[in-house]
Design a protein around this nucleic acid. Structure first.
Lengths: 187, 187
DNA sequence: CCCATAATAGAACATTTTTTCTAGAACATA
DNA sequence: TATGTTCTAGAAAAAATGTTCTATTATGGG
């Protein structure tokens, strides 16, 4: 019951991503102008600027991890390759979330003053992700740091060469595969 | 003649790096407190907040490129490898500059409102860097995008896994070499 | 020792940004 | 249609941030 909301979280998050990329910072005025939502609505839904930033960050992190962990845990002929390619794929079909993930700094998106429950939720997500990586590393008999580099560091480094300007070209998938393969072969 | 300056640019830049990492943003008050320099002095030397940010960015970019291009142009048995390893080395012995380079966003460090001469200087630096990469790519008969990934994207992705928290371990050098080698072999 | 110069210091000022607050709009239910 | 509820709207207030300005300090040269 009550008045229905007139905008989606997604729209506001996209505005956050846009500000991050265009201005290099997130000003509430810029967000409300971009998303065409009043400040009252923002505060009604997110409580504060910190709450908004935290919400956008959690949304992006959660969406990415869902896909990443699914790819990581699925059986494959080249273990890890699919997970490494989640990053470029994510950049292509979830542009706003990807921009937040790649250009947002954790310390600004989830500040010390963010709502405690949201901070807890982030810890939970990160724990889940870490566990997934550790399991994979153990199963493959690889050092965890090498796995982090192959599945996270390199794909991120690759897509950041293109964001925010242009789209991530298909060719990076092959290059990521080339770079990652030798790291994932047991030595 | 005149009163001698009582602090180094370097000290202020380090404070900028610190703020970037700790707070996720650069507030002048935080910079003056961290560097123990008065606002008057900051304005006297850098003119404005934008001027300070631009100066810190130029300093970091210039220092990195000097080492990167030197490594790129030096004759080597594994062409490109030394250049790829400049990034982790830079993180180890130029921590503040490396933090600015890895965590600062270009759009916030060198904003549209930065002093025009500083913007021009940055363009000049970037042009020099691009030329170096293109020359290398041509000489090696490799696509420029593959070179950018191997020499910039991957090393950056690797060190970002560690910064800002811990130091970059020696082991990443080997892993970077492993990942980069197949990208730099002519196909 | 006095002056010119160049820098520092920090309070006062101005501007920008965030937050609050009151009014009103949209919907469900009875 | 009356009522309770949830949301939107945007101006006003509050807080935070950036900038200016005057006084002061430190150094070298006449």
């Amino acid at each position: 019951m009550g008045r229905p909301s007139s905008f989606l979280d997604e729209t506001v998050f996209a505005a956050v991503a846009n500000c991050l990329v265009e201005q290099g910072e997130v000003r509430l005025q810029a967000v409300t102008a971009t998303a065409r939502v009043s400040t009252g609505s923002i505060y009604h839904r997110f409580g504060s600027r910190e709450g908004l930033m935290a919400a956008a960050w959690l949304d992006a992190v959660g969406a990415f991890q869902d896909r990443f962990l699914a790819a990581l845990e699925a059986p494959a002929t080249s273990p890890g390759l699919a997970a490494a390619l989640v990053t470029p794929a994510f950049c292509r079909d979830e542009v706003a979330r990807a921009l937040i993930l790649t250009t947002g700094r954790r310390s600004e998106m989830m500040s010390d003053k963010a709502p405690p429950d949201m901070r807890a939720r982030l810890d939970q997500l990160n724990g889940r992700s870490r566990a997934g990586l550790e399991t994979f590393a153990r199963e493959q008999g690889l050092p965890i740091e090498r796995v982090r580099l192959a599945l996270i560091g390199i794909p991120l480094g690759a897509v950041r060469l293109y964001l925010p300007d242009k789209a991530v070209p298909e060719s990076v998938d092959g290059d990521i595969g080339t770079a990652v393969a030798p790291l994932l072969s047991a030595r």
